[in-house]
Amino acid sequence: MGQSLAASWRIGKIAPEVVIDGLEASVMWYTEGKGDEDLNVHHFRRWSDDQLKELDLTQSHGFQCSLPLTPLSYEGTLVRIRWCVRLRLFCSVGRDSVAQVPFQLTSDAVPGLLTSRMAVVTAAVDQLDGTSAAGRAPAGRS
């Protein structure tokens, strides 16, 4: 295994009528481009509604995993390989909410050409007012 990844999530505001049934966090890669999509979940974690009731959702909750050496992020013409942390929120009302944070899995053997970077996004979710997810890519090989 290669570098380790630490990610955290929190839910800012929740409308009173919304009940969260579950939450899933995945560290995964997928392909984009002309070909059919390939994807693979490298790390998966699920919190049930009972487990979520014990958590303060407005606070950050993190998880860690070791990333594999490959596939490295790739920007080609026909094939593009993307890594991301995907957070899927199951609500009792409406559709699932998905927040996705891309990051680059790179090799630190070639400095300047392939560098890791931090990516933080805020995702707006219809049912939940102010849901956000944040992921942090590693700076070096562990």
């Binding site: 979940v41 998880f63 594999p68 050496l69």
Partner: peptide, 16 residues
């Protein structure tokens, strides 16, 4: 505090 998944055997390979 959650249900997690073990990495698959392909992920445990040196370079999947």
């Amino acid at each position: 505090g959650g249900e997690s998944a073990r990495p698959s055997s392909s992920d445990l390979a040196p370079m999947p």
